[in-house]
Design a protein around this nucleic acid. Structure first.
Length: 490
RNA sequence: GGCGCUAUGGUGCAACGGUUAGCACGCGGCCCUUUCAAGGCUGAAAUACGGGUUCGAUUCCCGUUAGCGCUACCA
């Protein structure tokens, strides 16, 4: 492997489900690595298992990758369209003697006890040691001819050396040597003529000139098999980089049981892609210091395989939410405007003027709201009243801030005072309200809180006077009037 | 069962032979304050266990335990 060549990496999901967070993290690491090194990222769909593969899921995976902002340079390639290559490679392996035809039934080989010849009697409780090879390995030509005559379609197995070790380099786990005696004669080509993962992954990675294989650590144990195939095909193995797995809060592999595991669900929930990326990047990788808020360009600058950890990480939703607040609040407001726009459109609150004549108001209002948001849905949720007159009073808010019995008398006076404000700005509203509070002998907080509930319907909202300015005098007055009958008088 | 990987607060990461073991999330308190956030300060909270090696181990080695992975004609 020459050192001056630009790396070529790939992300190779199989369409058996939605893109899940583990896959997304693998894709992200590949992408960051490629970007950092100025290399190339390919996308390959591993769909050689006709039973489990669902073609209609491919699109969802692409959509999720795009949402994540991960763009690939080549592909997507589909293994299902490259079957001939795998068969040719199998022929090559067969011809060189590195493979052999196996006529056993799949079930018989893997441990059942039926038909053919069964070695390894299952001892009472524990599982018997698995067979490493089957008798087909040394079938005489005559016996093989006989099997063929029976019309049995064989699977093609790899003839794993019985002695010696297989070596490979892992950028995360270091140099690895595995005893060949531990490696069984695995299947390369199924009796159906379709390749197994072990074969197709190697054939493709050779053909696509992949230099670094960055993938989940669940593939670590099977890597020696693949290295054996590289050798049998006369190719130099690439550098491997196995990244630790992401587990659920109960330390078991992340699955549906743990709630949302698909990337798409996080998009729907109102997470920002950059927040999600930042969160994912720090799961199993560290820049080497205590930095946590790393924008995408910094992630690319600082990413390195040497910073990848070897320990499984637990997916912590609370931390993800914290990242989202950071990305909702820290970047220049212009950056999040498109996301807020999409959210408002989704909830039917969007008005085109906010993108044109009232863009400034929109940007300012979003800026006012965002310090209190965690998810995009907050803009159409608790902050709804900033974008429409159609909102309700939160029961807890009215119970808490509309309970003072002086309010029914005070509020009409406040309306009158505010109507008299000619230059509607923060200080004028402030002076008007506080002035009234003083003359009426009540605390300003009483009026402030009651007014907040009246004009935004919530106890949780931005500072009142800024809110009043954002809403404008007319809407504040009318909402105050509208609230009057709802304030319990006694 | 076999083989392999891993082991720092509840969680994510630092410390890659010498630090009062650091940062962040979460949790508690205080400040700020007009609600709620944000922000600032602050508190509780960790080197799995046992042996070595060393002047000195979170760090290196061995064992134990635990977790995870692989052990499919899945990927």
């Amino acid at each position: 492997m020459t050192s001056n060549q630009k790396p070529r990496v790939r992300f190779a999901p199989s369409p058996t489900g939605f893109l899940h967070v583990g896959g997304a993290r693998t894709a992200l690491f590949n992408w960051l690595f490629a970007k950092h090194e100025g290399g190339t990222l390919l996308l390959r769909i591993e769909d050689t298992d006709v039973e489990r593969n669902k073609p209609e899921l491919v699109d969802g995976i692409l959509v999720a990758l795009r949402w994540l902002g991960i763009q690939w340079d080549e592909g997507p390639f589909f293994q299902s369209q490259r079957i001939e290559m795998y068969r040719a490679a199998t022929e090559h392996i067969l011809a060189s003697g590195a493979g052999y035809a196996c006529y056993c039934k799949a079930a018989a080989y893997t441990g059942g006890d039926s038909a053919d010849e069964n070695e390894g009697e299952g001892d009472d409780e524990g599982k018997a040691a698995k067979a490493v090879a089957c008798s087909c390995r040394d079938l005489t030509p005559e016996r093989r001819a006989a099997k063929e005559k029976e019309g049995i379609r064989p699977a093609i197995r790899f003839r794993t050396p019985r002695t010696g070790t297989t070596h490979f380099e892992d950028a995360v786990f270091g140099p690895r040597d595995v005893q060949n005696a531990e490696i069984e004669d695995f299947v390369l080509l199924r009796s159906s003529g379709l390749p197994t993962y072990q074969l197709s992954v190697v054939v493709d990675d050779i053909d696509m000139r992949i230099t670094h294989i960055i993938r989940g650590a669940d593939h670590l144990s099977n890597t020696p098999k693949q290295v054996l195939i590289y050798k049998a095909l006369g190719a130099e193995p690439p550098i491997f980089a196995h990244v630790p797995l992401i587990l659920g809060p109960d330390r078991t592999r992340l699955s549906k049981r743990h709630g949302a595991t698909s990337v798409g669900s996080y998009a729907e929930e109102g997470f920002l892609p950059e927040a999600f990326r930042n969160f994912l990047a720090l799961l199993g990788w560290s820049p080497g210091d205590d930095s946590e808020y790393l924008r995408t360009n910094e992630l690319i600058e600082r990413f390195s395989l040497s910073g990848v950890s070897r320990t499984n990480a637990i997916f912590d939703r609370a931390k993800l939410e914290w990242y989202n607040t950071q990305y909702l609040q820290k970047p220049p407001v212009e950056e999040i405007l498109p996301y807020v726009e999409a959210e408002l459109k989704r909830s039917g609150l969007w008005q085109e003027a906010w993108a044109s004549s009232e863009r400034e108001w929109f940007a300012h209002t979003v800026d006012l709201i965002r310090p209190r948001t965690r998810l995009l849905g907050d803009f159409s949720g608790w902050a709804r009243a900033f974008f429409t007159d159609d909102f309700d009073y939160e029961p807890e808010a009215r119970a808490k801030f509309w309970k003072d019995e002086k309010l029914p008398l005070l509020m009409p006076k406040l309306i009158k005072a505010l109507e008299a404000v000619t230059d509607w700005n923060h200080d004028a509203c402030d002076a008007s309200l506080r002035g009234m509070a003083t003359s009426e002998g009540v605390k300003a907080g009483l009026l402030i809180n009651a007014t907040r509930v009246a004009i935004v319907g919530r106890a949780v909202a931005p500072p009142l006077f800024e809110t009043m300015v954002a809403l404008g005098k007319d809407r504040v007055i009318s909402r105050l009037r509208r609230a009057l009958p709802a304030i319990p008088s006694r």
